[in-house]
Simulated scan of single mutants.
Amino acid sequence: MTIHQLADLADSAACPRLVVKVGSALLVGKDGAPRREWLTALVGEIAAMRARGQEVIVVSSGAIALGARRLGLAKGGRGSLSDAQAAAAVGQIALAGLWAELLAAHGLTAAQVLLTLEDLEDRRRYLNVTATLGTLLAAGAVPVINENDTVATQEIRFGDNDRLAARVGQAAAAKGVLLLSDIDGLYDRDPRQPGAVRIPVVRGVTADIHAMATGGSSSGLGSGGMTSKLQAAEIAELAGMALAIIDGQPLLPVATALESDRGTLFVPRGRKRARKAWLGGRMRLRGAVHVDAGAAAALGRGSSLLAAGVRAVDGDFERGDAIAVLGPDGTTLARGLSEYDAAECARIMGHHSREHEDILGYAPRSALIHRDQLVLI
């Protein structure tokens, strides 16, 4: 079945596996204490999903905010990286205990999973996450996932749980991702402006869609804004998942949004093969190559990327690293794993394959990026 409206996310046939992301501002009050009444109601909704046959994965923010209150840290624990890491170390225990307690009241077992960016960017570790989530769900547990903020560095982290939720959904082969936010969807401009209109359905995240987004979180507690949600939607659509943004503030947020059909649904594209979906969702790219119009057209026909069509090389990448392929106008056309390092790419760019052996001193590979290691964006 295809998900084409918000209500389909509550259908166990259309969406047998769902990721629900909860933001800090919803879970933690302005006083730094958990909003127990609201969270208790949400857990009841999750229990109802399980009762109708859906498997549920929770991606939960809130550890830093909870820990900051207990440690007495200013700025919600986000004044510095060291403050955030310390707050996360304390808050994660409280957060996990809260979910475990409330899920247990419905006879459900919570399973804590802390992830770093590298866990989902490295192919072997990604497959391990996939296997672990599959085993937990098969055993009837509810995985509760958060970024491992205690060890993540500023340079190597997701930075928001919107994109983490999309990547987790991809790893778990979910059919839908539900982002509970402090706003009820994507608007055509800043929703505080007069005449702003909510976009109910988005079929493909384009440059025009990105132009509608405003960065930053209005609450001051979270780390993501609409821009991060659109980036999550891009990851989801490449993986063949629907993603919805709904208002998480009502006491029963899921039922309220789905019954009133109020939110924004990003309709999925056709699901790609697992490896290509993983490539398309990667967030850390080591460099880029710029291609001419002929190479761009060939990629669109499903061809590999040949060095003859490359006009410039950016970055300091090695063979096997993920890089972007940029078109003549600078837009990203594809991502893939390079068969050469950056210096070699620079030497053979613009040259036909028959010239490569003389340039490099060894027999060339079949392509700069083989089509099996490349995904169009």
Rank of each mutant, 00 (worst) to 15 (best):
I3W: 01
L9V: 00
A10I: 07
L18E: 12
V19F: 00
K21M: 00
V43W: 07
E45G: 09
I46H: 05
E55K: 15
E55A: 15
A68P: 09
A74M: 03
K75I: 00
S80G: 07
S82G: 07
A84E: 06
G97N: 10
L102Q: 10
H106R: 03
L108P: 03
V113N: 06
A131E: 14
L133D: 03
G134K: 07
G140Q: 00
D149L: 07
T150L: 01
I156R: 15
I156H: 14
D162T: 03
K175M: 13
G176A: 09
L186C: 08
V201L: 13
G204C: 02
G204Q: 03
S219T: 00
A232P: 08
E234P: 03
A236F: 02
E237S: 13
G240W: 04
D247N: 05
P250T: 00
V254D: 02
T256M: 02
A257Y: 04
T264P: 00
R269G: 15
G270Q: 13
R273I: 13
M283A: 15
R286H: 11
A298D: 14
L306M: 13
G320H: 08
L326H: 12
G330C: 12
A334L: 11
R335F: 07
L337P: 03
E339C: 13
H352N: 08
R354V: 12
I359T: 04
L368T: 03
H370L: 12
D372S: 15
